[in-house]
């Protein structure tokens, strides 16, 4: 009897020991990711910060590393993102609304749903091949800002659709029923009541999608983005009539990640410092957007209690 008790105690001690060991191992493996993140950011900042200056932000690329800058790259990124946002946000939110509020349970809905899930898993470079074949050569849009923006729009579409659906699903049915009871039509209920409640969460998804697009390199290389551009596209606002110009849509372009890739793949170490500096700017953009999204989600979760 005594011996049995001893045995049981031994087993308990051993089990607890294993559990403690696992807790440490678990914490460590979580930390691997976080430590890598910190190392990466620190490494980039140490290499890149000395190179970062006003001159770097306002110069075109150059053969001399100390004169080169990222003006064309960040202007390109901003312009491409504008096209992406204009194309992806309405279509993405509309698809999300259809799938969540309108779609009946039939094979067509199932097909669309499977499609959205699958598209989210398609490698990004495949979107580049699609754009190369379809936009550049079939539709003759050329290797332009418009092509790049549309390509990235296709890429972020699944993200926007999925978050829109989640946001709409979180709005309780009582809101819809109250609107119907007041005589609202289906669309009025959605537009006046459901959407305003969910717009914050949708915005989070849009920001995350766009931050993914900002860092995306491969599909834009595939459609033939240039790496050496020493001029800016036409400004969208002009002094003379009709004041707005869309010729920037047809301009050739480069973007931040492509500029960085170009510098990384050069053998001279000075260019690699430039790459690090471009990386610092890029990472500030994407991490800033991600942090904003995480903060928004946190605030929404705290504010809204159904």
């Amino acid at each position: 009897m005594q011996q049995d008790l001893q045995q049981v105690k031994k087993i308990i001690i051993r089990n607890k020991l294993w559990q403690a060991i696992f807790a440490v191992v678990g914490l460590l493996s979580v930390l691997v990711g976080i430590i890598t993140l910190i190392t990466l950011v620190l490494d980039l900042f140490i290499d890149g910060l000395p190179r970062l200056s006003w001159q770097f932000l306002t110069s075109f690329p150059s053969r001399k590393p100390e004169e080169a800058g990222i003006l064309a790259a960040w202007v390109g990124t901003v312009l491409v993102m504008i096209v992406t946002a204009i194309a992806a946000i309405p279509v993405g939110i509309a698809s999300g609304i259809y799938l969540e509020e309108y779609a009946g349970k039939n094979w067509l809905t199932g097909l669309i749903e499977i499609n959205v899930t699958n598209l989210a898993g398609v490698p990004s470079i495949i979107y580049g091949l699609l754009a190369l074949g379809l936009f550049v050569y079939q539709l003759n849009l050329g290797e332009s800002v418009l092509t790049a923006g549309l390509t990235l729009a296709l890429l972020v579409l699944p993200i926007v659709i999925v978050t829109t659906r989640e946001a709409l699903r979180a709005v309780p049915n009582s809101i819809r029923e109250a609107a119907y009871a007041m005589g609202a039509s289906k669309w009025q209920a959605i537009w006046d009541h459901v959407l305003p409640y969910s717009i914050g969460s949708i915005l989070t998804g849009v920001i995350i999608g766009l931050s993914r697009a900002v860092g995306e390199t491969a599909p834009l290389i595939t459609i033939g983005a240039l790496t050496f551009i020493a001029f800016l596209p036409d400004p969208p606002i002009k002094a003379e009539f009709p004041y707005i110009s869309f010729s920037w849509l047809q301009a050739p372009f480069t973007v931040m990640p492509i500029q960085m890739f170009n510098w990384v793949s050069r053998p001279e170490p000075d260019f690699q410092f430039n790459a690090a500096a471009a990386g610092v700017v890029l990472i500030c953009m994407t991490l800033g957007m991600n942090a904003l999204a995480i903060y928004l989600r946190y605030r929404i979760r705290k504010q809204i209690k159904w």
Partner: peptide
């Protein structure tokens, strides 16, 4: 920790490439 891990997924892959090659 969860948001921190999410940030890891938000870093552009070209930056990871730089990190792999030069660090």
């Amino acid at each position: 920790i969860k948001p921190c891990l999410e940030l890891l997924a938000g870093i552009p892959t070209v930056v990871y490439g730089y990190f792999a090659l030069l660090f």
